Computed example of a mutant assay.
Amino acid sequence: MDKSWMMICDRLKSKEYQQGVKSFIDFATKDLCPHNDIRCPCVDFLNGTKHSRQVVWLYLIRRGITCSYRTWVHHGERVPLHHGQPSVSNDAGERDGAKIFDVDDHLGESPTMLEEIYMSGLMDDHINGEPNSSERENLVKFIKLFDDARRKVYPECEKFSVLSFVIKMLHIKDNAKLDNCPTCKESRYKFTNTSGKKIPHKILRYFPLTPRLKRLYMSKKTAADMRWHKEKHVDDGLLRHPADGQAWKDFDMQHPMFSVEPQHLRLGLV
């Protein structure tokens, strides 16, 4: 099911958006009686209040649907977390490299915990009042966390989801204060000298990034070199500088206000 219409801003004039709202209401009411109310996923109610399908349609047209509500669990769509569980495909998400995949092996008990919270707490039928600002903020944060648990770090990644990768990085950070390796139990330090200072086996030395970049502009020569891509670059079709690459040109098109200033820096990871 294509959900790309949820990102359209011009709701009142877009036939695609209005058709998308109709398809959503048809999906949400396919197993309900004509007089049954449904939860309203607009930006005001965030599935916290039930209305008739006509009122929901009106709110979605005038106020807009919550863009982060990608899996319609409040309206009958299954949460695709476990093996063999049927789900409704999300074409828009797949095009963005956010194809849903099984993260049970990467998060341990986290998917089950998230699913239980999502399917019980958020779908509590006793919630009839409008959510306050704090509840809306918490709900948006949880929906983002839930989406991160099901989204790959990059399209070809099969080992980590965004959430599991962040958790892994936090665990590595926690190991910074350990005296022994958590895997092989070897000491992190060679020995302790007479002054009591610990000498580690491995030392990583580096220049802090911000001061290093500032120093490049302290010299007239290097400062001119830093602006070369804008002031002296010749676009003759030959690839001799990163500015000749398609990635650089695409970045300039997407961020024209940034690219107009020649002293702005682009950092790349290799």
Rank of each mutant, 00 (worst) to 15 (best):
D31H: 01
D10I: 05
R70E: 12
H82K: 11
I100R: 08
Y69S: 05
S89H: 14
I117C: 08
M119S: 13
S23H: 04
M113K: 11
H74W: 07
V21D: 00
F101G: 01
C67G: 07
G129C: 12
T71Y: 04
H106Y: 09
I8F: 02
H35T: 14
W57L: 12
C67R: 15
D105C: 08
F24E: 02
L107G: 12
Q19S: 14
S120V: 10
A28E: 00
D104H: 11
V56Q: 03
G48E: 09
D105H: 14
I127G: 00
D124P: 01
M123S: 04
I61H: 02
N90C: 09
H35Q: 13
R78P: 08
D10R: 03
G76A: 01
P131W: 10
L122H: 08
K99S: 10
E115H: 09
E109T: 12
D10S: 03
H106V: 13
Q54Y: 06
I61V: 11
G20T: 06
D105K: 10
D37T: 14
F45E: 15
M113S: 13
I61M: 06
H106Q: 14
T66K: 07
E16R: 04
Q85A: 06
D105E: 14
G20D: 04
G76S: 00
V79T: 10
C33Y: 13
L114S: 03
C40P: 09
E16C: 05
C42S: 14
I25W: 01
R70H: 07
D102V: 08
S23K: 06
S23E: 10
G129A: 14
D105R: 08
A98Y: 04
Q54G: 06
E109M: 06
L122M: 13
G121T: 15
M123D: 03
I65H: 01
G129P: 05
K15R: 13
F45C: 15
E94N: 10
G76V: 04
D44N: 15
V56A: 03
I117Y: 11
D37A: 12
L46S: 07
S120A: 07
V21Q: 00
M119L: 13
F101L: 02
H74P: 01
R95G: 02
S68M: 08
L46Y: 11
L12F: 05
V103M: 10
E116M: 11
K30C: 07
D44S: 15
R39V: 12
Y17T: 04
H35D: 15
D102L: 09
L60A: 04
D104A: 09
P80Q: 02
K13F: 09
Y17Q: 03
K15L: 13
E94V: 12
D104Q: 14
C9W: 06
S52H: 03
T71E: 04
R78L: 11
H35A: 10
G97K: 00
G93C: 01
N36A: 14
G108Q: 02
Q54I: 11
S68Y: 07
Y59M: 11
H35R: 07
N47L: 09
K30F: 02
G76W: 00
D31F: 00
E77T: 01
D26R: 01
I8E: 02
N47T: 14
C33D: 15
S120E: 09
S120K: 10
H74M: 08
N36Q: 15
V21E: 01
W72D: 06
G64K: 01
W57A: 14
L107D: 09
